[in-house]
């Protein structure tokens, strides 16, 4: 349906997005995961035809969408990261305006507004001014504004930034419903790993403007299939102990937080016996010890050496 081929964007000579290859099949829900500054928003802006790429191609059903942006604009709804709403107008008035820009008129417009309001759960507050809304309600209205013309592709750029968990769940549920019940194709960007994990069939992990991994959640987790992630809790920690743990054969990475050690080591490393031996040597008491199932966060850590929120 939608494909980008070697898509790149530079601002003042600095490459913000580099050779991005991405595709979205009809009805799919695809996540774009990456920390702040990874190039997700620039990618979204290029895909939604708001900015022109420096190089590369975007095709929509085989048609070059850079030359014919209407091909994408016609079928897509974009939810920007910022609240693109008139604060001094009511939710209904905002939707009336955005609907009318899509040439919706009369009963058709009224029906589209009603459906969008019901979908995001703002029907009972439709007459209230947007400036009186909570952050979560504004975010929901931001999404509703992109749904009025019933787009085939919904592109969401970090739609849950800075809102309460309830509103976040509401938004995630709504997007899931759109994808699963209405068959809307979803491209969802976030730096919250758990959101894309919940919502998306496939993921692209971006860092420093590049896609560093792509695939289904299972495929990505398989990257860590050769590793164990072990969490160790002790009664005290000293530097010498940590340094010696680092020297254990097969240990890749150690994260130290207060009295906890997160150790990523090669599968099959006889870590437990070596750790017990080291704790005894340093007169440290081992309080807890367990192996964790790796998450996408771990995949990101493995690939980039830092966490998503770094």
């Amino acid at each position: 349906m939608l494909e980008t081929i070697n898509l790149s964007k530079s601002f003042k000579g600095k490459k913000v997005v580099q050779d991005l290859n991405l595709y979205l099949a009809d009805g799919e829900s695809v996540g774009l995961l990456g920390p702040n500054g990874a190039g997700k928003s620039t990618t979204i802006s290029m895909i939604s035809t708001l900015i022109k790429p420096t190089s590369g191609r975007i095709t929509m059903n085989g048609v070059n969408a850079i030359d014919k942006p209407g091909e994408i604009r016609r079928v897509s709804g974009v939810v920007p990261q910022e609240l693109a709403l008139y604060q001094e107008l009511s939710a209904y008035e905002n939707l009336k305006f955005f609907g009318s820009t899509y040439k919706l008129r009369g009963k058709e417009l009224a029906k589209a507004i009603q459906q969008a309001l019901e979908f995001v759960g703002l029907d009972d507050r439709k007459k209230d001014l947007v400036r009186t809304y909570s952050g979560g309600m504004k975010r929901r209205l931001n999404i509703a504004s992109a749904l009025l013309h019933r787009p085939q592709i919904l592109i969401l750029d970090e739609p849950t930034v800075g809102i309460d968990p309830q509103s976040r769940n509401h938004i995630l549920e709504a997007v899931r419903a759109l994808n699963q019940q209405e068959g809307t194709t979803v491209l969802y960007t976030s730096h919250y790993m758990e959101e894309v994990e919940q919502l998306c069939d496939r993921l692209y992990i971006m860092d420093h403007g590049k896609v560093i991994a792509a695939g289904t959640k299972e495929e990505l987790l398989r990257i860590l299939s050769t590793e164990d992630k072990i969490k160790v809790e002790v009664n005290k920690l000293d530097e010498a102990f940590v340094e010696q743990v680092k020297t254990i054969e097969g240990v890749y990475k150690i994260e130290v937080t207060e009295l906890q050690l997160k150790i990523i080591a090669a599968k099959g490393t006889s870590l437990i016996s070596k750790l017990v031996h080291l704790t005894e040597k340093h007169q440290i008491q081992l309080l807890n010890f367990h192996t964790e199932t790796p998450s996408l966060e771990d995949v990101f850590l493995h690939l980039t050496g830092r966490t998503l929120r770094d």
Partner: peptide
């Protein structure tokens, strides 16, 4: 700045 302009750009307007 608020993004409303971009919304309009993406519409048939």
């Amino acid at each position: 700045v608020s993004g409303i302009w971009d919304r309009m750009i993406l519409s048939p307007l």
